[in-house]
Design a protein around this nucleic acid. Sequence first.
DNA 1: TTGAAAGCGCTAACAT
DNA 2: ATGTTAGCGCTTTCAA
Lengths: 351, 351
Amino acid sequence: MTTMKEVAQRAGVSVSTVSLVLNGRDSGRVKTEIAQRVRDTARALDYRPNPLARSLRTSRTRMLGFVSMEVATTPYAGGIILGAQEAASEAGYLLTTVNADGKVNLEQEAATLHRYGVDGFLFSTMSNRVSDIPESLASYPLVLADATDAHNRFPAIVPDEVRIGRDATQRLIDAGLTRIAYIGCTAPLVAQGLRLEGYRQALEHAGIPYRSELVCDVLYNDEALRTVGRLFDEQRPDGVFCFNDSRAWYVYECAARLGLTIGEDVSVVGVDNHPVVSETFSPQLTTVELPHYEMGYWAATKLISMLADSPAEDVRWPATTAPMPPLDAPTPAMIHCTLIERDSVRDTPMD
Amino acid sequence: MTTMKEVAQRAGVSVSTVSLVLNGRDSGRVKTEIAQRVRDTARALDYRPNPLARSLRTSRTRMLGFVSMEVATTPYAGGIILGAQEAASEAGYLLTTVNADGKVNLEQEAATLHRYGVDGFLFSTMSNRVSDIPESLASYPLVLADATDAHNRFPAIVPDEVRIGRDATQRLIDAGLTRIAYIGCTAPLVAQGLRLEGYRQALEHAGIPYRSELVCDVLYNDEALRTVGRLFDEQRPDGVFCFNDSRAWYVYECAARLGLTIGEDVSVVGVDNHPVVSETFSPQLTTVELPHYEMGYWAATKLISMLADSPAEDVRWPATTAPMPPLDAPTPAMIHCTLIERDSVRDTPMD
DNA sequence: TTGAAAGCGCTAACAT
DNA sequence: ATGTTAGCGCTTTCAA
């Protein structure tokens, strides 16, 4: 590991000059020629600053803490972490992830990260739950990823659920189907109501009347299977939009029992909440993926911009500037998430 | 943030004394009375050492790097990370995870962690693949989690696949079934052959002849479905051990088509490779979980013990000391993994 | 325009 | 048994 001192010696200048140059603070303070020589020798020696030493001095670590509540256990977490990871990496930040499986634990982990001097925190629940943000994080720069603050005190990146519901339904409409069912979820999730709203919007736009008989909310097990079975027997839908692929499975089971072929007799679109591997369902099930990666990416990007001395003004945060596109626009990639700024709270009540 | 200096002043001693005491190097060097006073004031002031400053001096950071190849995208990763996280946390280490989606990227990320001064690395692939360990990691203390080194140069924690296969099959045998099928995987995974071996062992022990007609390996999609369907039609198994729950799904589909009820007409045990949420399958499918958490936990524990000045000798590494239990022993929790030491290579050829 | 020097919080060799 | 001191590698006044 080459140090600054070595670079200085080799370049025949003092360490302070090297520091100045290598941090880009040399304009009008160091002769251009010398500055160049410093840069050259630094490159020649493959000099890399020691982040620890720098942090000790500046008390800024370029480390980010990713705190998740039980989220690491769940399949979804990976994508969020990965996205955050990538954004951090691009900006020269290091992401350290900790999982908290309880309030006490969270305080501890946060304290540890605090001692290591992280510059800010990302916080993530599972499936965008509304939750009280732990006090131990509240005093830091903080951005939520796939989580909603009950008091809306922090910026958050969440899936654009209405649009997800709209686009999923639109796919079935585009396939020429008319008896489109919605299998929702009885659990109190932010997504449930919003996806249903998207479903209604898409139907309305297509001139298909909304019929409550085609909609049901289920939880799991036999009861879920029976409910879906009844809907199938009575309504014979030709398309189904499922809250997630867990629900999609009940549809599969019912279809198999009735001798219906998925993709021919009935088409299914599910939101990829619990990633059943594509190798299993692949050709039959159309999946709308939740933008986990993107949420992580944008959340980290937002956090980093907050930490910067000069906040980036030219960033086009997802969906804050772009108006919702018209319903008949093509919906190819299906990756939507939204930045919720703290001040916008009154405009967007959440479920 | 209280510093050592403040503690020293308040206790009326010098910083070196404080350092000595607080690092437990005071036996026979500092008067017991003074040592106690130091400890008291430290507690009173809620003093926490600054890890950065310490690291700058000692060049040991108590940070671990968790490097995974594309693993963060996959559902399995979470558990491994979580386990590693917890072990690290318990030992006062910080885990920083990076995902590498390519060789170049890996070099970069490793270099970053290197500059931050991590003490060692954990490396994880997905589904215990045999792979060449990147050179950029090879020069560090390194432990593999759910990964196998082609040249067996590093300690690794991997699932005990034979036992997993044995136990899964045993469950079906215990349920009184005799026509037990194995739905394997054609992909070249370490697990495939070993789980099949476990299946054979369990059958043999129960006095049930192994019949190749009851065994098939499938990949995915229609062909997989057809193959499993044929096996069902021709053999009418009363129990099925599935390589993973992805394969289990084909069994479900076939059973539904034949009007068979899972759990009554045919029992299924699947290995939980791709965690389909339990809320979907819960009562019908018996799942053998892969010990992701445990692998992470033990891998980190192993790494930390390697880093310690005095390696822990009293640790009972999973399965290295314990002999494989007899086949008729109860198999409750089904959590098996193994530590492979570098030297044991010749004893345990893989695949 | 450059360099010397102080100091971030800690550890450890050396004095006392 | 305790204190003094010299750094770890870097940033940042302040002098020159």
